[in-house]
Computed example of a mutant assay.
Amino acid sequence: MKTSVRTMHTKKYTILFTVLMYCSFVMVGQHSTILAEELKSTLNTYYKNKEFNGTVLVAKKGTILYQGAFGYANIEKNINNTTNTKFLIGSATKSFTAIAIMQAREKGLVELHTPIKKYIPELNDELGKLTLHFLMKNSSGLPVHLNRITQLEHRDISSKELIKLYNTTKLAFKPGSKYEYSNLNYQLCAIVLERVTGMPYKDYMETHIFKPLNMHNSGIERTNKVAKDKALGYDLNNGKFVKSDDNFMSYAKGGGDIYANALDLLKWDSALYSNTLVNDKSKQLLYDGSPNAFGTYGYGFKVKTYNRSSSKKITGKLVRHGGSMYGYICNIHRYLDDEVLIVVLGNMRPYPTMEITLTVENTLRNYNVL
C-alpha cells in the first residue's frame, strides 16, 4: 500500500508540531524553575538580614509560580514557618468585610447610600447619618482606632458595647469631603451585616466566604479562640526577636480580625475572577478607586495602576490591601489585568513589606509574567 505525498507531509507537520509543542512546554517549565529560584534567592537574602520571617506565594491565573516559607512560627519551640502556616492578616480583613457587604447588597438587604441608622437605630443622629458608601470609602470622619476613645481590654467585647463607644465620639470632618483611614468604618460595616443577616459577623464570614471556598485554614480570631498552627507574632528589637504583645482581636471586628494562610488567600483570589462570591457589578464597585476625595480607595481595596512588561506596553489595575498588627504585617497584591497574585505574610514587625512585594513584582515583570 502506497502512502501519498500529502499524507507524508501531514505526518511531517504533525511530528514537527508535536516537537515544537514539547520544546515549548520544556522552555516554560525551565522558565518557571528559574523564576522560582530567583525569587527564593532574593527572599532568602531578606531572611538572612532579619528583614523577613514568614511566607510568600506568587500565582498567575490560579497556578502557583512560587511559594516559600522562612524563619520560625514559634522561635521558643523551634517550629518552622511552612507554606501552610496561618498568620493574622490585620487590615486586609477589610477586603473580606466589603465583599460580605456587597453580598448583602445583592440580596437586597442593604443600600449603600442609605443612612446606617436604619440598620443600627441605637446610633446617635450624627453617626446615624453615615452611609455604607462613606464607611467603605474611609470617608466618614470617624477616629482611626478605638484606642483613641477607650482603654482596650483583652476580652471579647460585644457589638452593643462597641456601639456605645462609637456614640461617644465626634466626626472630624463632613462625611464624603475627604479620605481618612479608620478601622471604625469597617467595624460598623460588620455590625450592619449582623443586623441585616441576623447572624453574628464571625458566623456569617464562615458560612458565606470561608466554607464555600474551602478556606479551611482561615477564620475569625477572638480572645479565647486562637487558631491552632498559627505563627506567633514577634517584634525585632536591637537585632533580637521578642514575643509581641497580644492583639485586641474583638476590638478589630470587621477591620482586622481574620487569620489565613497563603493557599487560602489564593482560593479567595481565584474566586474573585468568577461570580462565586459577588457579581460583576459588585466587583466594579469594589475596585472603583478613581482619584477623588476618597484617596483611590475602592470598597475594601486600595486601587492603583501598575506597569506591565515592555511587550504589553499598557498599565494595568492593581487592587491591594496590607495589614499591620502587633507582631504581624502582610501585603496582598492582585494584578487584575494579568490575574497575578502576590501574598506576603510575616510574623515579625517591622520588616520592609512593600519593598519585598515590589521586588517580587519587578522580578515577575522581567519574566513577562506581568
Rank of each mutant, 00 (worst) to 15 (best):
V278L: 09
V242Q: 10
L232T: 11
K230Y: 12
N238T: 06
K253H: 01
C189S: 07
D245E: 14
D280L: 08
L236A: 11
G254R: 13
N214Q: 14
K211V: 12
M249S: 02
M199E: 10
R195W: 08
L213A: 03
K230W: 10
T223C: 00
D229H: 07
V242K: 05
S250K: 04
N237M: 08
A271N: 00
F210M: 03
I258H: 07
N238C: 04
T276D: 11
S274H: 14
Y201C: 00
H216L: 09
L263D: 15
F248P: 06
M249T: 00
A190T: 09
K243Y: 13
K228S: 14
I191T: 07
L272Y: 12
A260N: 11
T207F: 10
I220V: 08
V196G: 00
L236Y: 09
L193T: 05
L277T: 09
K240Y: 08
L213G: 03
G233A: 04
L232G: 11
K202P: 03
V192I: 07
L213T: 03
E194I: 04
A260C: 15
N247W: 11
M215F: 10
Q187Y: 03
S244C: 09
H216G: 02
P200E: 01
K240I: 09
D280W: 06
N275S: 15
A190G: 07
N238I: 03
D257M: 06
E221S: 11
K243W: 05
S250P: 01
I220F: 01
Q187P: 07
A190W: 06
N261K: 12
K240R: 08
V242W: 03
Y201A: 02
G254Y: 01
V196W: 00
T276A: 15
K230I: 15
G219Y: 05
D229E: 13
G239L: 04
W268D: 02
S244A: 15
A260M: 04
K253Q: 05
N275F: 13
N217I: 03
A227E: 02
T223S: 00
G198L: 05
N224T: 06
V226S: 14
I258P: 09
L232F: 13
D229T: 11
R195S: 08
A227C: 05
L272F: 09
N237K: 12
S218L: 10
Y204G: 01
N279Q: 08
S270V: 14
L266T: 06
D264G: 03
N275H: 15
K267Y: 13
S244E: 13
S282N: 07
D235H: 14
L272C: 13
I220D: 00
N217D: 12
T223I: 01
Y259W: 09
D245F: 10
T276E: 14
A252R: 12
L236R: 11
K267S: 13
N247L: 09
S274T: 15
I191H: 04
Y251H: 07
